[in-house]
Design a protein around this nucleic acid. Structure first.
Length: 591
RNA sequence: GCUCCCUUAGCUCAGUUGGAUAGAGCAACGGAUUUCUAAUCCGUAGGUCGCAGGUUCGAAUCCUGCAGGGAGCGCCA
């Protein structure tokens, strides 16, 4: 980034701190940092702060009076107009048009688009996607995969070192079930025709059988034990199952443009499980209970906060974290604890994010509590998300009542996009239309996901996803395409003299200020891992740009408006493309 | 039974240290295309923020209770 490109919000904050000094209220806490936010309404200006109201409360003084004192001491030079006091004590700031124009000029030459690298960077391990062996990726994987990838891309851009880890489910009970199914119920023709779907059929069949028939469950366990003790036949079959599963998943990842740094399945940690349990026993963290090995509450937390306790019939009872079953098998939690050890000790992660649905929140709370008890102070976070529902508000299913395969969802989205492309842009060559449809279709699926608040459930709707208006991928992509169409028609190069830009129209101003805020928005996404903040920002930018595009002629304008508008189009184009890329979306040049 | 999440316009959703008159989109209604542009723009209408209390200058946001919906709760992962 160009040196000295500190965001407006940061500059205003710093000047507020400077202004508060001479006011001489000794009891302003040293760590007090005034908050400056983008104005909630453009009528109020560009930025606002409620610092006078917040401080007036602790200082027991009149907020408007305090605000006017702050303004007296506030240095506006080279930044904004004289701040205004409004309402109960808000201070509103308006960046001057000259400063705005010069910032846009800087952005045209800035590869980082005004986004600073984080001051303290860390090694961040993100655990996401995590398909299971013998199961094709389905709609249930979409949120983890797309959210995890977006967080990874954003974190990398902000300067963190990211390890994207695909923690595949390739071990334990289900493997025995597939092996048993393979040996007893395999349909070779079906397997040859569609390996993954035959594996899924076997798994589902045997899973059901072993739930009702202990005999079969026993047989499956034997297969699992054989596999885990290195039986050559089972090992070879298992490797084949993994290969089939991963090559299916890889096709999806390729379409989604998603890449992992490591793909370490649960099996990778198997050798560490037995010693881990022994160590936990020796350390007194775990203990035997009904033949199983469990970790119970240490009782040093408030019971309400303690994930190892639950209230039942008026008293707090243990819900232990089980790490070894009565039959000697290890649990989900055991692998996860071992995985933390590897990530902390070998991969040297400073922070680990688990992008996993919110039904597993108790599991993660227990896991993190166990880590705490073991003295692991690496930051562990469960990035939980809600369910995808059908329009009946029940979990989204196909018409046949099955869970939709992710590949089919993408195909359907692309097909629908293709129909619209053919209709709207029949003049484009066939292969370009196919490419556009792929980008819009896949982009629509991703955007639908990332524009939703992560924590809430949402209703899956083709109509909404591929709608041409509203907060959708096609709308965003259309804004980008419009910027590109201008540059296809522009002759000559894109050089602006530093003093040639001049902002005057409201529509120009509106996107200019938005463009300057890209660097303010991106760091916020990592605060609580909320990609929808970026989606909303880009949507507002796209809206502003469409509006500008209607109102302000670019190529036919007189100077200096022409250069200014070209600069605004150029920067909009780059921010849109960059932001969409962070969402994992690659916009076409035409549509 | 207990714990966690959810409840905002007809529909789908934003709204995060408590801040200004609660915002979008869709659907509805009314306008705009001799233009770099319609996969677009401009406008109108639409709200008891589940209900009831509390905290305070100020609550969709924090606290308590209640109702409705979802999920989880020792040998699955």
């Amino acid at each position: 980034m160009i040196e000295g490109m500190v965001t407006f919000s940061e500059q205003l904050t710093q000047r507020l701190i400077d202004a508060l000094g001479p006011i001489g209220h000794g009891n302003i806490q040293e760590e007090f940092i005034p908050v400056v936010t983008a104005a909630t309404d453009t009528r109020f200006g560009d930025y606002q702060t409620n610092v006078a109201m917040t401080l007036a409360k602790t200082l027991r003084t009149n907020p408007r009076e305090l605000a006017s004192q702050i303004i007296e001491n506030f240095d506006v030079s080279g930044l904004c107009d004289t701040p205004e006091i409004a309402g109960p004590g808000f201070i509103n700031f308006r960046i001057t048009n000259d400063i705005l124009a010069s910032r846009i000029y800087s952005l045209t030459g800035d590869e980082r688009l005004g986004v600073a690298l984080e001051n303290s960077t860390k090694r961040l391990l993100i655990d996401f996607s995590s398909p299971n062996v013998a199961k094709p990726m389905h709609i249930g994987h979409i949120r983890s995969t797309i959210i995890g990838d977006c967080i990874a891309r954003t974190a990398r851009f902000l300067g963190h070192e990211v390890i994207a880890d695909n923690h595949i489910g390739d071990w334990g009970t289900p493997m025995g079930q597939v092996l048993y199914g393979w040996k007893n119920h395999l349909n070779e023709n079906d397997f040859t025709a569609n390996p993954i779907s035959e594996l899924l059929r076997l798994y589902q069949l045997v899973k059901q059988q072993s739930e009702s028939d202990p005999e079969i469950a026993e047989q499956c366990l034997k297969e699992t034990v054989k596999l885990q003790s290195g039986d050559p036949e089972n090992l070879a079959l298992w490797k084949q199952f993994i290969e089939i599963t991963l090559s299916g998943a890889q096709e999806i990842y390729k379409r989604l443009d998603i890449h992992f740094d490591t793909t370490l399945g649960e099996s990778f940690y198997d050798q560490h499980l037995a010693p881990l349990v022994e160590r936990l026993l020796a350390e007194g963290i775990a203990q035997e209970s009904d033949g199983a090995i469990c970790i119970f509450s240490s009782n040093d937390l408030d019971p309400k906060e303690d994930p190892l306790l639950v209230q039942r019939d008026g008293e707090w009872r243990p819900i232990p974290c089980m790490i070894r079953k009565k039959d000697g098998g290890f649990n989900y939690a055991t692998t996860d604890i071992a995985t933390i050890d590897y990530r902390v000790n070998d991969q040297k992660a400073d922070e680990i994010l688990y992008v996993v649905d919110d039904r597993q929140s108790l599991h993660f709370r227990q896991l993190f509590e166990v880590a705490r008890r073991r003295g692991i102070n690496t930051c562990l976070r469960h990035i939980a998300f809600g369910k995808i529902l059908g329009d009946d508000r029940k979990p989204f299913k196909t018409r046949e009542g099955t869970v939709p395969a992710l590949g089919n969802v993408l195909d359907e989205a692309v097909d629908r996009a293709r129909k619209i492309v053919d209709e709207k842009s029949s003049e484009l060559p066939e292969d370009e239309r196919a490419d556009i449809a792929e980008k819009i279709g896949v982009g629509a699926v991703k955007y639908a996901e990332l524009s939703q608040a992560r924590s809430s459930d949402y209703i899956f709707s083709w109509e909404k996803m591929l709608a041409l208006q509203g907060n959708t991928a096609p709308y965003m992509i259309n804004a980008y395409v419009r910027t590109r169409s201008i540059f296809r028609k522009l002759e000559g190069n894109l050089e602006y003299p530093a003093d040639s830009l001049s902002i005057s129209e409201a529509a120009e101003r509106s996107i200019a200020i938005k463009l300057c805020q890209y660097g303010e928005i991106l760091p916020q996404i990592l605060c609580d891992h909320r990609p929808n903040l970026l989606a909303s920002y880009l949507y507002e930018l796209a809206q502003g740009f469409h509006s500008f595009y209607e109102q302000c002629p670019v190529l036919n304008a007189e100077e200096p408006a022409r250069s200014t508008r070209i600069a605004l189009c150029d920067t909009t184009s780059r921010v849109l493309r960059h932001g969409l890329n962070l969402l994992g979306i690659s916009p076409p040049e035409r549509m």
